[in-house]
């Protein structure tokens, strides 16, 4: 339980209902109290509620202590009774700028979506681009390609770093990317080279997307794929700039939503 004086503080929840996982961040006066996630599965609403309950349990809070819940993500309409919603782009901008105050370009690569957001000096989003209806620039692509070369998805990154040279695939989509990988296998390319080719192809797509906004430093990478060392290395090569990655990059959307919830809670007071 929390004391009376603490109750005056603003405690908010941000929930990000992604295509593969649901992430929750609880924020107290703009400081993260806890993070929690789970695979969305089939019953998204139910899982979302469980993740929130779990996070509350960890922080010994009850839902009544929360002043505002903001939901975001592809499954936003499945969020259990949020006070408000926000787009993924605004949430990313908010989180990116909060984590790195010099951030001007925020790239979010998730399971099935990738987007890039441009911020001004005040952290206000001024432009954004998204990849649509194609998972070639997103996490699902790594997963499919890992299957094709029979390695675990988590192994792809470290494996790719061992590549001695770059081969290429013209990944236009998961399906055709796979046949590209098959032809590399037939050429008897080694697994590290193929893994690197997969990340290079993804980074290629993402970097041309980012170039449409202009590559303005500081560049921040968030989303689940931001944990993949192979992808990070490829993206750095393609963009030719340093990339900042926060701890827990997959929680950026939820964090952004929680920050926006805090702002909205204060406005409503």
């Amino acid at each position: 339980m929390i004391s009376k004086s603490e109750k005056l503080l603003t405690i908010t929840i941000g929930i990000d209902l992604g295509t593969q996982t649901i992430k929750v961040v609880i924020l107290k006066d703009n400081l993260v109290l806890t993070r929690e996630k789970a695979v969305s599965g089939f019953e998204t609403s139910k899982v979302a509620k469980q993740v929130i309950d779990e996070a509350l349990k960890k922080t010994k809070l009850s839902i009544n202590d929360i002043s505002h819940i903001t939901a975001t993500g592809a499954g936003v309409q499945m969020a259990p009774n949020p006070n408000s919603t926000i787009s993924m782009m605004s949430a990313d901008a908010k989180a990116g700028f909060y984590l790195f105050p010099k951030a001007r370009t925020i790239i979010d690569v998730g399971a099935e979506e990738a987007r890039a957001i441009k911020c001004d000096d005040n952290g206000i989003m001024v432009d954004f681009v998204v990849n649509e209806r194609c998972a070639a620039g997103a996490g699902a692509f790594i997963e499919a390609m890992a299957r094709a070369i029979e390695v675990k998805m988590e192994e792809m990154g470290p494996l790719s770093l061992k590549a001695e040279r770059a081969s290429s695939i013209n990944a236009t989509c998961v399906i055709f990317g796979e046949s590209d990988v098959v032809s590399l296998i037939h050429k008897q390319e080694s697994k590290p080279e193929i893994a690197r080719a997969v990340f290079d192809a993804m980074a290629d797509r993402i970097s041309s997307m980012v170039h449409r906004l202009g590559v303005n430093p500081e560049v921040v990478l968030v989303g689940g794929v931001a944990k993949d060392v192979g992808f990070i290395a490829s993206l750095k090569r393609k963009l030719g700039v340093d990339i900042s990655i926060p701890d827990y990059p997959e929680y950026a959307g939820a964090l952004g939503a929680a920050l926006i919830a805090a702002k909205r809670a204060k406005r409503n007071k």
């Binding site: 592809a74 787009s87 993924m88 782009m89 605004s90 954004f128």
Partner: peptide, 30 residues
């Protein structure tokens, strides 16, 4: 600000388009 919104003669992409349009409007509101 200008946003490039591409689509097809279909109703299936309305959900994705909604996210993009709303993000753009959030940006204008901000």
């Amino acid at each position: 600000p200008v946003y490039y919104l591409d689509t097809e003669y279909t109703r299936e992409d309305v959900g994705q388009m909604k996210t993009r349009v709303e993000a753009f409007l959030e940006m204008l509101t901000a």
